[in-house]
Amino acid sequence: MSTPSGPTRERHEQHPSAVVGERRQLIDVAYRLLGSPAEAEDAVQEAYARWYAMSPQQQEAIASPGAWLTTVAGRICLDVLGSARVRRERYVGPWIPEPLPDRAEWISGSTGGGRADPADLITLDESVSMAFLVVLESMTPAERVAFVLHDVFRYPFAEIAGIVGRAPTACRQLASSGRRRLRAAQAPAAPSAQAAQAVGQAVLVRRFKEAWEARDIRALVGLLDPDATMTADGGGLVGAVLRPVEGSVRIAQYVVHIADRAPGLTLLERTVNGRPGLVAQHAGTTVTVAAFDLAGGRVSRIWAVRNPEKLRRWTGADGP
């Protein structure tokens, strides 16, 4: 797995700009660990708060502020992941990571006070595809931290050991376990295949949109893998099926049923986590963001995020 920012870089300069310059890397790491831009921002802000709480002398004693911030942010994320597993046991229905729009498409580029939206700092590559993030959700917190830091960002196991509190050999085993989960899920293609697959996905998603708009169940079935699954996340705040819908026929019938129940639904082709997807709007408000995965030239998985708390970056987006 390639890394958007490369391995850890030693920093021997304590200039404030050098410390602040680590924020993009930290947000990139934290989002992949937590699956939520807001939680990633909170973790990174907490890491910076601990840095600035130290005296100048304590800061000067740290040879690499970047490595220090990564270690602290990683430990914070590890704690958040542990508590998140407990919270998600009480979550209504399936939990899907918060979808990211292309930075040119979201409604707001800032969080107020002139500070960039944390999502604007996230590198959109294969390691933030919905298929990849969903597999990360199946890992234990320690597996996820070790795998993401090593396989995605190329941090050495000796450094990861200081974050998860285990020996480097144990961290190697954790990353290996995460790798097996990824292979078992047949999640995303190698980086070299990403561009070609994205083009094919864009065509397939457009055809899916057209068939959905036409309420053409037969066409939808033809675009879906026979064993396809569709998972919806309403978070108990809006209506959503609580179990995955399985099979091409059932999925086709379900999406047509949704369209019939919501006259005036508008479907837009949009980038979702760096890959072609669909956005459904009703009366100008985004009500669903759908991410897709392919297998054998057909749609194999659909993740439909309907929880309005996860759609704040999409609400009010303009039409085509």
Rank of each mutant, 00 (worst) to 15 (best):
M1A: 08
M1W: 08
M1Y: 10
R9M: 07
E10P: 09
R11E: 12
S17A: 14
A18D: 09
V19Y: 06
R23V: 14
L26A: 01
I27W: 05
I27P: 02
Y31W: 12
L34I: 08
L34A: 04
G35D: 06
A38E: 07
D42Y: 02
Q45Y: 01
A49C: 00
A49M: 07
P56F: 10
P56G: 07
Q57S: 13
Q59G: 01
A61M: 08
I62N: 02
S64K: 06
A67M: 04
A67P: 00
T70V: 08
T70Y: 04
T71W: 06
T71G: 14
A73G: 03
G74M: 13
L78N: 03
D79Q: 14
V80S: 06
S83F: 01
S83Q: 15
R85H: 10
R90G: 04
P94N: 11
P94T: 07
W95C: 00
A104W: 07
A104Y: 06
S108N: 14
S110Q: 14
D117W: 07
P118L: 01
D125K: 09
D125W: 11
S129V: 04
V134M: 15
V134E: 14
S138D: 11
A142I: 08
R144Y: 12
A146M: 04
A146W: 04
L149I: 05
F153V: 00
R154I: 00
P156G: 10
A158V: 07
A161F: 08
G165R: 12
R166A: 12
P168Q: 00
T169S: 15
A170H: 11
G178F: 05
R181N: 02
R181H: 11
R183W: 10
R183G: 03
Q186D: 13
A187F: 12
P191I: 00
S192K: 06
A196K: 06
A198R: 15
A198Y: 05
V199N: 03
Q201P: 02
A202L: 12
A202E: 13
V203S: 09
F208P: 05
A214S: 11
A214K: 08
I217T: 13
A219Q: 14
L220A: 05
L220V: 11
L224G: 03
D233S: 01
D233F: 00
G235E: 01
G236T: 10
A252K: 11
Q253C: 02
Q253V: 07
Q253F: 02
A259Y: 07
R261F: 04
A262L: 12
G264Q: 06
T266V: 15
E269A: 09
R270K: 15
T271D: 07
R275N: 09
P276V: 03
R298E: 08
R301A: 05
W303L: 01
R312K: 10
R313D: 10
T315H: 02
G316A: 06
G319W: 10
G319P: 05
